[in-house]
Design a protein around this nucleic acid. Structure first.
Length: 258
DNA sequence: ATGGTTGTGGTACAA
């Protein structure tokens, strides 16, 4: 079984690359973020042509999250209780005996910006949701763009950027709460010392210089985590496609299970 | 060198 998460940065601009990636990678369950599309305009037919079914929380121009799977996912919930940000950033679906959450954490912009406390509130609400799950034993996968570098290792800036947005003690404490709720960071569990960057700025040759961040994370309950054989970043999908198609600024993160 | 690029939607704004 293959699980994945990918911030596509606009499903319209990325539908061809998405189809190529699905064809090549054949994931069983995929969390997508930054669809930037309303539900009525979502390309369900293209997704279906690739052999997948989707459920989503959509929004015009910004945000938007989906769960794709070869089997039809069933929506559990589309709103995160307690989160102040009303954007389409959260969806939980059931598929193949798993509960799958696809999330897009608010960016926060800067510590001085009004969005920063909203980001913390959103992460707090997520931690609350995970801690209060009715059936804590049920297998859960949580994939998405967390917009937080969990440690110095997760950022090209290392300790230099400590205290700046994505690198604060408050943000990191909330990621720690997700781990404390019993979820395993699949990449970090497998590779304690690898950077594992999944995002590179479009500007200033960041990808070429490998100045990236590991902000796209796959978490899972211990029963699922125990089945993980490998976790990889599909870096080739951060490059232009054969047809010259522009990439997302994020690469897919993939967990291969037995 | 205090920049750079992209997506969406509409010539601004978020990332």
């Amino acid at each position: 079984m293959i699980l994945a998460t990918w911030n596509v940065n606009g499903i319209r601009a990325r539908s061809q690359r998405l189809a190529e990636w699905l064809e090549e990678r054949q994931p069983d369950v995929v969390c997508l973020q930054e669809l930037k599309i309303v539900e009525d305009d979502f390309p369900h037919l293209e997704i279906r042509a690739s052999g997948y079914r989707a459920v989503l929380a959509g929004q015009q121009s910004w945000n938007g999250v989906a769960v794709l799977a070869k089997d039809q996912p069933e929506i559990v919930v589309k709103e995160l209780s307690g989160a102040a940000d009303a954007g389409a950033r959260f969806i939980v679906a059931k598929v193949s005996g798993l509960e799958v959450a696809s999330i897009y954490v608010p960016n926060g912009k800067t510590l001085a910006h009004a969005d920063y406390p909203l980001k913390l509130k959103w992460l707090e609400s997520l931690a609350n949701y995970l801690e209060s799950r009715a059936d804590k034993g049920a297998p859960l996968v949580l994939g998405g763009d967390f917009n937080v570098c969990s440690t110095e290792l997760d950022s090209f800036g290392g300790a230099r950027l400590d205290g700046t947005i994505f690198h604060t003690l408050e943000e990191r404490a909330l990621i720690a709460r997700i781990r404390a709720a019993g979820l395993v960071d699949l990449f970090r569990a497998k590779y304690p010392e690898a950077p594992g960057y999944s995002w590179w700025d479009y500007r200033a040759g960041s990808f070429h210089k490998n100045e990236g961040l590991r902000i796209d994370l796959l978490f899972a309950t211990p029963d699922v985590a125990a089945r993980v054989k490998d976790v990889t970043v599909d870096r080739d999908y951060r490059k232009k496609g054969k047809s010259g198609a522009v990439p997302s600024d994020h690469a897919p993160v993939v967990a291969i299970l037995d």
